[in-house]
Design a protein around this nucleic acid. Sequence first.
DNA 1: TTTAACTAGTTGTTTAACTAACTATATGCC
DNA 2: GGCATATAGTTAGTTAAACAACTAGTTAAA
Lengths: 146, 146
Amino acid sequence: MPNNHFKRGELYSFITGKASTAIARRLQKKFNNAGLNLTIEQWSVLYHLWKQDGISQQELCNATFRDKPSITRLVDNLEKLKLVKRVSSKEDRRMNLVYLSPEAKKLQDRTMEIAEETLNEALISVPADQIDICKQVLQIVYDNLK
Amino acid sequence: MPNNHFKRGELYSFITGKASTAIARRLQKKFNNAGLNLTIEQWSVLYHLWKQDGISQQELCNATFRDKPSITRLVDNLEKLKLVKRVSSKEDRRMNLVYLSPEAKKLQDRTMEIAEETLNEALISVPADQIDICKQVLQIVYDNLK
DNA sequence: TTTAACTAGTTGTTTAACTAACTATATGCC
DNA sequence: GGCATATAGTTAGTTAAACAACTAGTTAAA
């Protein structure tokens, strides 16, 4: 039994994620203005390493919802920027464990602050309880499809 | 005065748009399974042409929330697929008006059905009133940042 | 009228997503 | 042990996004 909550005219925004695109663009612009030479995708990898350093590329795939080739290239580029280092695991030599450089650790506070600021700008005039509902709906959508 | 509704652990999903990514991937998979040789980005351009045929590339930029180079390339690829045609405007010779081919018109019903089906799968077990709130929040976010 | 400023679209470059095909290591079964 | 299978990661090719620099046509003002 389909819900059919979406009339045709409303369908587009939801599928193409205009809101999250707008957030990501604003955040990227703020990074650039702050002189941070960092893409949002690179930042999203660092984000998970700040939570737990030294995880494998496969774990980064799961955490960031990206496939293996994407993580390979992102880690390549982060290595070029000297922000992370691959260390092959001694327990399982197939695995690369990805470690933050000291320089990358320094980026955490500043970039998280900018990210929070961006979200606050995005959510101006949205009541807190509606934000909560929105987060819950998006979580269910993700769980339904992942 | 910042809202600070987002704890660090919740911030990531909202910025990277995991839910809309999941929707787009599911829709792309359904297109592929249906034998439709069409990317979601290409479909999103056709989507607006189905609403109004013969609009300019600039109008497609506004409608799809993409920049001009992106639309140039998408229209390039849609032309290669013989789904649209550029016709330079007689009133303003700088403008290309983009027209659907008969073949593209045939795609509308089938792809819109698949898109609606995808959204219904995404929204299983989400109450209608919460979907409405979520749509409103995302619209405000978009308006706040665009 | 011609010059400046603006608008529509294109091209080049870098980064990233997705698929498929690949290498190397690990695991499990006979 | 040896073979099949699974897992971790890489490489190649196509499509797309973001940005800067560009061409060409239009508008407006000196």
